Computed example of a mutant assay.
Amino acid sequence: MNKTMKRLSTGVSGIAIAAMLLSGCSSSTTTSAPSKTKDNSTASTSGTPRVSIMVGGLEKIIYMPYMLAEKLGYYKDAGVTVTLVEESAGQDAELALLAGQVDGAGGFYDHTLDLQTKGKKVEAVVTMADVPGEQLMVANRLKDKVKTLADLKGLTIGVTGLGSSTNMLASYNVVKGGNKESDYKPLPVGAGQTLIAAMQNNRIDAAVTSEPTASLLKNKNLAYTFVDMNSKDGTVAALGGKYASTSLYMSNDFVKKNPEVVQKLANAYVKTLKWMSTHTPEEIADKMPEEYYAGDKALYIQALKGQLPMFTTDGKMPAGVPDNVQKILSAFKPAVKNVDLSQTYTNEFVDKVK
């Protein structure tokens, strides 16, 4: 990896995290990070467990619970020290998790299915949203050309990263339109200003993106929503049902060996989700770092209003949703049909939250 890591929580310094990830070393190589015992459990000299979590874009509203939990003091209340490390795509978080560089990943649930086809077992321990919170947006210059999903053929579609959830959702919509996955070009452009610049410079014809990037594209008259996977009704229409997205996933082995740590994290995130469900978008926005507003707090709040309904209030994986995710991914990844869904998520910890 060659991207700069940011320190976004207490625990490990940004410089230490950057060195850790760039060198390919695990978090146990720094004195301030979690140390590992022989059974791979987390430990710290203060007795408070330390956990590192890489999130595929902390400024994205879909991943808001991670930073909000810190701002509300809920990690501390739960008795765990969390270091949040930011990357632009969920795919990067997935790779860091597999390499043992972080303990958990903040990304979409679909990664757990994809990884199982590659012999890697990870599971979502908290499910924070049951719709993707994404939009397939098409450049305004193509409004007269792109009218059906079939018209996506031949387009260059911006995604956060190759193999990312935005890549998977782009592929599904292309295939749903009667095309093959190879009939479009996915181009990794990240999110936020890098994606907007790619659209402005005509490097991409469309993009799968979330808020606040989607609202910024509209506000700049660059693109329009072609497929809504942001609202519940839109998601059902586009994907045939709900689609578990934002989640905390960890290796099955880590979860098995560190149940007390996982429970503390579940306690913090469920408490955060409940707080979100009882406060206004304005109150929530006031808790977030100002840089997340991208220079327009009013637009951020507007986008937040549209995305709040996507979040669960209890952190549970809704019944039947994993089956729908499996069906969607199987449309262009046949191996996903053989995935054992029972190993891709658990409600064990959120069920115990008081």
Rank of each mutant, 00 (worst) to 15 (best):
K337W: 12
K38M: 06
L84K: 03
N202E: 12
M288I: 13
T313L: 09
D183H: 15
K38A: 13
V270H: 05
V126F: 12
V126I: 15
V82Q: 00
S245Y: 02
L341F: 02
N140C: 05
T4S: 05
T194E: 15
V51I: 15
V262F: 03
A237F: 02
M250I: 09
I196W: 04
V261D: 06
S165Q: 03
K256H: 11
L84A: 04
T166P: 13
K6R: 10
W275P: 03
A18C: 04
N267S: 00
L152R: 07
V321M: 02
M54Q: 13
M67S: 00
H279V: 00
I15E: 15
E283Q: 14
M20L: 15
V227T: 14
L187Q: 00
P212E: 13
K71Y: 00
A16P: 00
A223W: 11
T42P: 05
L222M: 08
V336S: 05
G240Y: 10
V174Y: 04
L115H: 04
A150G: 13
P334E: 10
V131A: 12
T48E: 01
Y292V: 14
K218T: 11
G11S: 07
D130R: 15
M288V: 11
T312P: 06
G104Q: 10
G106M: 06
I284Q: 03
K185N: 09
A244G: 14
G306L: 01
L152W: 04
G315S: 08
D233Q: 14
M5Y: 10
L273S: 08
P289D: 07
L304Y: 09
H279R: 02
S23T: 15
D296Y: 03
K352N: 12
D144M: 00
T81I: 15
A139P: 08
V339K: 02
T235A: 07
D103V: 05
R7A: 13
D39R: 08
Y243D: 03
V350G: 01
T127C: 12
G79M: 11
K120T: 01
T30C: 08
D323P: 01
L142K: 09
V146T: 06
M168Q: 13
T10W: 01
A214N: 01
T209Y: 06
G192R: 07
G133D: 10
V208T: 14
T31H: 08
L187Y: 04
N202C: 08
K60L: 15
P309E: 05
G79H: 01
V175C: 07
V174W: 02
T272K: 06
D253P: 15
G234C: 10
Y292A: 15
D228V: 05
T29H: 13
G177D: 12
K287Y: 04
I61T: 11
E134D: 12
G57W: 01
Y345G: 10
K327V: 04
N219V: 06
H111R: 05
D39A: 14
A244M: 15
L273Q: 10
S210E: 14
Y269I: 07
A335V: 03
P309V: 10
E134T: 05
L162Q: 03
P212N: 12
T225S: 15
L217M: 12
L72W: 11
